[in-house]
């Protein structure tokens, strides 16, 4: 393994391409941690946003008009305002009020910036997911639900066993697209100093003055990550595809 790192040191010596994240142990460690933080952020946001999407889609079908209107207001607000400003709002504005004094008598924020990032990004992607799941459910023909009920399924069972599996398959392409966008959007956590990849890369290039190299590495990694996600999602989509099924 050390031979690989040494190769990069030689590369720097001969061509001037400075990739300290490979041959310098400190930079290597902090970049790797940044990478892991990014992955953790992405994974958490993915899961939470899907959960919010499911809950929101269910709320949108609620009987109470107030619940429906509130859900719509949430969705429209999130979609039509900048995610970065939302993030600042959560972290700076709301965060200013959520403080408590710790044992040493200092005022510290209750919620860390990482958690705010997860909350904000999950709410952001969740709003889009609500629309996607709703469209999927509505795309299942009413006749299918009627047939299920005619066979004796209760409303709940019909949804669980017939409508939701179909709706899920219909929403899958749009959902995948949204999840890919979410992965790209996690970079805005940089703005509130979450030590994810972009932030750590910034620290490294400030120290080592290798902006071009670090930017290229970042681009390659992100494009690669997203590429893997797209590929994986595509495989999953194909596995879930129902031959010959086109919903109304």
């Amino acid at each position: 393994m050390d031979a690989v790192w040494e190769w990069f040191r030689v590369l720097h010596a001969t061509t001037g391409i400075k990739l300290t994240i490979f041959y310098d142990a400190f930079d290597r460690a902090r970049f790797f941690n940044g990478f892991l933080t990014s992955l953790r952020l992405m994974a958490l946001c993915l899961v939470c946003s899907v959960a919010i999407g499911i809950i929101g889609a269910w709320l949108q079908g609620a009987r109470s008009a107030l619940v429906r209107a509130t859900t719509q207001a949430y969705i429209q607000f999130i979609r039509n305002t900048p995610p970065l400003v939302q993030l600042y709002f959560f972290y700076f504005a709301l965060g200013a009020y959520l403080r408590h004094t710790n044992a040493a008598g200092l005022e510290v924020p209750l919620v860390s910036n990482f958690v705010w990032a997860v909350i904000c990004l999950s709410l952001y992607a969740g709003a889009f997911n609500v629309e996607i799941f709703r469209a999927g459910i509505e795309a299942v023909p009413r006749e299918t639900l009627e047939a299920a009920e005619a066979l004796g399924y209760s409303r709940l069972k019909a949804y669980l066993h017939i409508v939701l599996p179909l709706a899920f398959r219909i929403s899958l392409p749009a959902l995948n697209n949204n999840l890919v966008n979410l992965v790209k959007t996690t970079t805005i956590a940089y703005a509130i100093a979450v030590p994810e990849m972009l932030y750590v890369a910034n620290q490294i290039w400030s120290d080592e003055l290798n902006v071009a190299e670090m930017m290229n590495v970042l681009l390659v990694i992100y494009v690669g990550l997203v590429g893997i996600l797209v590929y994986g999602m595509g495989r999953w989509e194909r596995r879930m595809r129902i031959p010959g099924y086109t919903p109304a």
Partner: peptide, 15 residues
């Protein structure tokens, strides 16, 4: 399409 918008912004601003 696969690049985050913020990373592209940094790239353009700095390079």
């Amino acid at each position: 399409r696969n690049s985050p918008w913020l990373v592209l912004l940094f790239y353009c601003m700095l390079l």
